[in-house]
Amino acid sequence: MRSDNLLRRERLLHPLTAVSLALVILAAFVPIFGDRLMMNIAIMAMIYIILGHSWNLLTGLAGMFSITHALFFGLGVYGMSISVAKFHLPIIAGLLVGLLINIVMSAIVGMIGSKLSGLYFVMAQVGLSQTIYTLSIQLFPLTGGVTGLSMPREYLMDKSTLYWIALILAILTTLAFAFIRKSRMGTMFVALKENPDLSLSLGSNVGKWRIMATVMSASMASLAGSFYALFMMSNNPEVFSMVISLKIIIVVIVGGIGSVWGPIVGSSLVVMDELIRGIMPTTMAPFSVIIYALVLIIMAIRHPEGLISIGRSIGLKLEGKSMKKVSISK
C-alpha cells in the first residue's frame, strides 16, 4: 500500500517535469511569434511568478503571514528608479541599492515577526507599509511624489531583451525556491511554521530563522521590483498598494501554497487578467480588481478553515487532488 503511494508520487512527478519543460519551451516561442501585447503579458506573468515564490517562501514555508508583500516589491522599484533616474548610477548599482534597502526593511519586519505573532504582526506590517507609502509621496525631491520619476531614455531596453531577462529571473527564482525547500533552511522554515516550540527545543534558533526567511523573501521581491522599474521605466506610489499584495497572495493560493508549482500555476490568473485588461478600455480597470477579490472570497467560502495552511486543504493541490480521486474510486 505504502509502496503503491510512493509509486504514484513518482509517476506524478513525471507529468509535472514534462509540463514544466513544455512551459519553458512554450515561453521561448513568445518573443518569436508573439506581439508586444503578448510579450507584456508574459513579462507581467513572470514578475508575478517571482513575487509568488517570494511570498510562498515567507508565508508558505516559514509561516509568517506577509500581508503587505508589495512593500518589498515597491522598495525594489524605488531603489532602482531613484538610483538610476536621480543619481544616474548603472543598473547593477540600482539593483544593489534596492536589495540593500530591502534587507534593512526585511530585517526590521523579521525582527517584528519574531517578536509578535498573528494579528499584531499583520497590523505592524500594515503600519510599516502605510508609513513607507506616505513617505514615498511626501519625499517629493527624492521620489517624485505621486507622479513618480521617469527613467532616462538610455536605459530603455528592447522588449524581447526584457522578456528574456524576466524568463531567466523567473526560472532562477523557481530553482532557488526548490533548492531552498530541500535544503537545511527550508526544513528549518517548515519546522518553525509547524511547531515553533519543538523547533526551539531541537536547537533551532527560531528568531534567527524568521529574520532569515524575511530577508530571503524580500530579496526575491526586490529583484522583481528592480526589474519592474526597468520594464515600466518609471515608478509611482501605487507599487506599494494593497492590490499588488493581494494579487501576489491570490496567485500563490490559487496555485497551491507551499509548493514550487503554486506561483507558476497561479500566474495563469495574471495572464487572464492582463489579457482582459489589454482588450477592455482602461475605465474597466476597477472590474479586474473586483474579479481578483471575488476569486479570493469564493476560495475563502469554500475553504473556511485555512486559506493559508500548507498541504492540508488547498495547498499542494496537484498532489492532493490525485490522492482524493484514488480514495474515492476505492
Binding site: I67, L119, M242, A300, E305, G306
Partner: peptide, 19 residues
C-alpha cells in the same frame, strides 16, 4: 481562522473601494 478572515476582508475592501 484569522488568516482567512484577514484575506477575505481585504478582498471585500478592494471590492468596496472599486465599487
Amino acid at each position: 481562522n484569522h488568516g482567512t478572515q484577514i484575506l477575505t476582508t481585504m478582498a471585500v475592501e478592494l471590492v468596496i473601494i472599486n465599487l
